[in-house]
């Protein structure tokens, strides 16, 4: 049963320090407002390659990036939120999506393969094969002993090589925090149609701490801070993507709207005035990134 408050800590926005709560919101807004501009750019024909939107799921990366700073990151195809939350330059992301040589991979890789190797961020690019990043993250952790973050989806969690990698990380007690962004959908096929088991149970059976929770950012923040000290560990986070698997379309109302829930939580914590200013500042910043005249110049359209 998917619910928006699975294992959620009540009044989380009021429990975490104010600066943390607002910083997480800033990062949520960064992804949301970037993708609002991206959706318009797709509609206007400035971005023509496939896009995998993080909207709806952005609270996960925002909370993780505050709770677990500085890991070596191996993200999955839906990676805009991870890139932006961890400090990636939105202009370079825009340029990558537009296929420009100034993009994160020189415009060669695109939306599902974003990398970042600057400003203290180490994020290795995905190549689009779901779950491929997980064994590579595990190998990286084995060879380097560095704190590693492997992010994947509920579909990738079914790949045999992902499960094997969890087992290997457990055997060798590797410093990997596995995060499954469980939006319940492989394209449009629900988890319950695909399998009868939970990846958290499998991870626990391998011998690592594993939790199921929904995408309340304050809870993710608190739990990730705890689990990163106990790696290997796994978080299976129930979330709802706002758009199609690939593309800017929607399939009607989502199960829950975390962005709205977060706003309400900040209001309840008495932080809305500050949060509103943060949101406005992020929107202003992203409107500059996606300014029409600039897009015309860059695209030659």
């Amino acid at each position: 049963m998917r619910v928006p408050d699975l294992a959620v800590i009540e009044n989380g926005a009021a429990i975490v320090p104010e600066d943390i709560a607002l910083e997480i919101y800033r990062r949520i807004c960064r992804t949301r407002t970037f993708e609002e501009g991206l959706i318009k750019a797709v509609k206007d024909g400035f971005v023509t390659s496939p896009v995998y939107l993080s909207s709806g799921q952005e609270s996960i990366a925002a909370a993780l990036s505050v709770a677990v700073p500085g890991p070596v990151i191996f993200a999955q195809h839906r990676c805009h939120g991870v890139y932006l939350s961890y400090g990636g330059d939105p202009v370079k992301l825009r340029d990558e999506l537009m296929g420009l040589p100034t993009g994160t991979s020189g415009g060669r890789a695109g939306s599902n393969c974003i990398q970042c190797h600057e400003n203290g961020v180490v994020m290795h690019g995905h190549h689009g094969l779901i779950g491929e990043n997980v064994p590579i993250a595990v190998g990286y952790a084995l060879a380097s002993k560095k704190s590693t973050l492997a992010i994947f989806g509920d579909g990738a969690a079914e790949e045999d090589y992902v499960l094997s990698s969890l087992g290997f990380a457990a055997t060798h007690r590797l410093p990997v925090l596995f995060v499954c962004e469980d939006n319940n959908l492989s394209i449009l096929t629900a988890v319950e149609t695909r399998r009868s088991w939970k990846v958290s149970k499998v991870a626990a059976a391998f011998g690592m701490e594993a939790v199921d929770l929904s995408d309340d950012p304050w809870t993710i923040f608190l739990k990730a801070k705890e689990l990163v000290k106990k790696t290997p560990a796994l978080m299976n986070i129930h979330t709802c993507r706002a758009n199609w698997h690939v593309g800017i379309g929607t399939d009607g109302p989502v199960e829950w709207d975390r962005f709205l829930d977060v706003r309400n939580a900040l209001k309840g914590a008495g932080l809305w005035d500050k949060a509103q200013k943060i949101e406005e500042a992020e929107r202003f910043c992203m409107e500059k990134v996606w300014e029409q005249g600039q897009l015309r110049r860059l695209s030659g359209k």
């Binding site: 990286y140 952790a141 060879a143 380097s144 090589y161």
Partner: peptide, 20 residues
């Protein structure tokens, strides 16, 4: 490596990425 031929190769590739 355990008998995980696909993941095993991925672990080797990850080790290469780490410079080993």
């Amino acid at each position: 490596l355990p008998m995980t031929d696909v993941a095993g190769a991925g672990i080797a590739v990850g080790s290469a990425l780490a410079g080993r």
